[in-house]
Design a protein around this nucleic acid. Sequence first.
RNA 1: UCCAGCGUAGCUCAGUGGUAGAGCGGUCGGCUGUUAACCGAUUGGUCGUAGGUUCGAAUCCUACCGCUGGAGCCA
Length: 465
Amino acid sequence: MDKPLSPIPIKDALQSAALIDSVLVQGWVRTRRDSKDFSFIELNDGSCLRNLQIITKNSLPNYAAVQRLSTGASIRAVGTLVTSQGKGQKWELIAEQIEIMGAADDSYPLQKKGHTPEFLREIAHLRPRSNLFSSVFRVRSRLAFAVHQFFQERGFVYVHTPIITGSDCEGAGELFRVTTLDAKKMQRRTDGEIDYAKDFFARPTFLTVSGQLEAEAFALALSKVYTFGPTFRAENSNTSRHASEFWMIEPEMAFCDLSGNMDLAEEFVKYLIADARKHSPEEMELFARFVDRELFARLDFVVERPFQRITYGNAVDLLKKSGEKFEFAIDYGSNLQSEHERWLTEKHFNCPVTVFNYPKEIKPFYMRLNDDGKTVTAMDLLVPGIGEIVGGSQREERLEVLEENMRRHKMDPADYKWYLDLRRYGTVPHSGFGLGFERMLMFITGVSNIRDVIPFARTPGSAEF
RNA sequence: UCCAGCGUAGCUCAGUGGUAGAGCGGUCGGCUGUUAACCGAUUGGUCGUAGGUUCGAAUCCUACCGCUGGAGCCA
């Protein structure tokens, strides 16, 4: 008896070095064309962008059933991998046996013609079977790997910061509440407030909006750490760049100032772009052809050149002198508007720009106060087409200054004892930033809506699937 | 959440007050080592939903829902 064949990925079949006598592949039919005495099946198993062409001769016992195969059906095929007689592919499979596993009738929504991303988003369970989305999600996987590789190569320790958090202090932003209390019969205290002492954690809890504070604790022990995990924001943001659930990467480094922080962010962004170019060439080619024709020019430009660095104050001066007519006036002391950021990165410098040293009034309490007493060591990395992709800072390591910052932000230092302990015992200068994983993926693939780089996106009013 | 635009066949769209259309897809037939195949025929509709105006509404008005672009919040 012959041993049962083990299946090989279509990717391996297409990269075969030589003819293979007997091989098993399995996947989903992308399209089928009839010829006189046989039928061509294009089979895809998601292992790569390309399909394997299968020749099914009319001598096969189930040829009539094969001829009824349509886009979306799943099959297993056994045959000989041979050099293709046709143009367009090196290898093809001459089938000896086709096992039809699951048919797909003519209501299957994916056609071999191109579909808009908006339509495919409505069938999020089927869109990974399209060229665009299978490519996006292969690159997403590879990019996640590259994130770990980048930090592991540099001696960073991966820290799993909590997803359920008790602190709602991590900066502005609405949080998702985590509770096991029954909304219908919620116990209230005599003052009418909800009694969270009766809740699961005996206190109010939320889904995390950032792992930074916890990462700081670990950086002040393991020196260089990073987090990489899901993050939740309950903001009612309806834009192509915001999701309610997204993944964020947050490195945190002890003994590191803002300059070192900016260096790392720049190196990191360049590393990820270079990794995608190197390890996902077919997918990147698809994005450059069908998503964004300027993609390669922009990515290569970013990798090759140093990023611009400019203080907030100088950026404001530049904007004022630009002669550009902005909808919103540029004013020292207020946040840069999207149009201002876009002018800096897309028009003036035409490359990624790191803006740093912002007025303390518009930044969170944990950022380190500069010697001028007016600005803090914040930095935002802006990229063309996306806007802010990294936000970070050197953290305030001086206990008294940090406590003063908290009071200025109307926070009670007593509520943050553990965080202040980090300054009380062996404090050191330290820095870190947050990089939006999906925004990076958008920049690298050219895909312009964040919902299209997340397998099943959660946005306000939308949590189907 | 705010501003603007859009919502018509499975998909992409045309139709702007008077009988619901095209291309693609699907189906059937033909041809063919084809590859977004080709040729012919055919199929296909609660015009987003609910009200209203009108003799008559896909078309005009109102509300709601959804999508797109922009803004705010940010990653």
